[in-house]
Simulated assay, not measured.
Amino acid sequence: MRAAGAQRGRVKRARLADVDPSLIRPALAGLVPYEPGKPVEEVQRELGLERVVKLASNEGPYGPFPAALEAIERATLELNRYPDGGAYRLGQALAERYGVRFEEITVCAGADAIIGYLSLATLGPGDEAVTGWPSFPSYVLDPLKVGGTPVRVPLERGRFDLEAILAAVTPRTKLVFIAAPNNPTGTTNTRAELDAYFAAVPPHVLTVLDQAYFEYVDDPDYPDGIAEYAKAGRRVLVLRTFSKIFGLAGLRVGYGVGSEEVVTAIAKVRRAFDVASVGQEAALASLGDHGEIERRRIANREAMALLTQTIRGAGLDFAGPAVGNFLFVEVGDDAETMHGALLRKGVVVRPLGPFGAPDALRITAGTPEEIDFLSKTLSDVVPAFR
């Protein structure tokens, strides 16, 4: 028999001992923890649904590359051993791939972890980190965690306003975060705009150019931050990830390319065994499969066209041009209510209040079958909001 007070499979139990309030740093008092999208299994259990489609977290809709699956199977035989704390083989492969030194590569448990470690390594009370807004919450949350001051610069027509960001830089600014493309709007800046920014940004500032969706973008005006800025001598840390097109989001592997001094500082605050051995091996096996990357890039291009058609067909607006694998759908004050209505029908999308956009939803381009399910669900849900 379920214990009294139990809900949704959770049993009510007595609280453990409280701690003195002064134990927790004051800088954390106003923080709201990042809320990931709900897992499919949880939505099915809570709502009693047979089919649930998750289009909330900008994951690639396909699993690991075939070579990565083989590497994962081999790596499981050594799971009694700690992973390589320095990710030596993966770091060497990345250094060779990009033509930089091993000491200029940092490998961590996702690009998001690098943002956190960099904030810990560089920011103190009162130090500033400037970013466009709305954007990825970690650009704000991680500086706040260490007592830093995030400076939010409003987007211009859904894109980072790089001139306004430069104007927001002060002598206390240490970091500028630029998402290209931006999450959650899916838009990006041109090469000319980024060139002008890097030519003007003061030398005391480190720019973090987040290119998590790099492999999806096929716009010829989209710059390669490693080749065009890091290797050109700009003070920049370029972030990339294996979570998106490589299909390894569940293994958490990201990397950054930047100066040896920055990489060394990150290593000083990074956990000793940050990236699991399975993740390292899967990432390493994925690097050389250019054919699979191209196949997935083409599949994403087709999925984005289908998603765009679906959203337009439902009479909804979105930011653009979107160059990643998701759309920023503008629904006004009904965003949270529409999110709930879609959820009850089995479609998980992302409400964007934590990203600074409470009037919008982010919808990921899934498989054609998933987008078809979304289309049918929108035709049921949207008329109630007209």
Rank of each mutant, 00 (worst) to 15 (best):
R97W: 09
R8N: 13
I72K: 11
H339S: 12
A360C: 10
L378V: 06
A121H: 05
G85D: 15
L316D: 06
G346Q: 11
T377L: 11
I371M: 05
V331D: 03
A180E: 02
F326S: 00
V208P: 01
G346Y: 12
L162Y: 01
V236E: 00
D142V: 07
R13F: 14
E261R: 11
A249F: 09
A272E: 15
K54Q: 07
Y255H: 09
L118M: 13
L374D: 02
G9E: 10
G85N: 11
E370G: 10
E369C: 13
F242H: 08
I105V: 15
D317W: 04
F198K: 00
V347R: 01
K268Q: 15
G320C: 08
V201D: 01
R301V: 07
N325G: 00
T190D: 03
I266H: 03
F177T: 03
L94F: 09
P321G: 01
I245V: 10
I298D: 04
Y213I: 03
A121P: 14
A111Q: 04
G320L: 04
L374H: 07
V43D: 03
L155C: 05
D195H: 10
Q211W: 00
R301N: 07
Q280C: 12
L327H: 05
V275T: 09
P220A: 03
V262Q: 02
A164E: 08
L343F: 10
V236M: 02
G247H: 11
G91I: 04
C108I: 06
A14W: 11
F373K: 14
L47R: 14
G60M: 05
E294R: 08
A314I: 04
H339D: 12
A276H: 12
P125N: 13
G256D: 05
E78Y: 14
L284R: 06
P383A: 09
E261K: 13
S135W: 00
V238W: 00
V201G: 02
P181Q: 04
T122R: 15
E260S: 08
E156V: 00
T190S: 12
E163G: 11
I105L: 10
V19R: 09
D195E: 15
L206H: 03
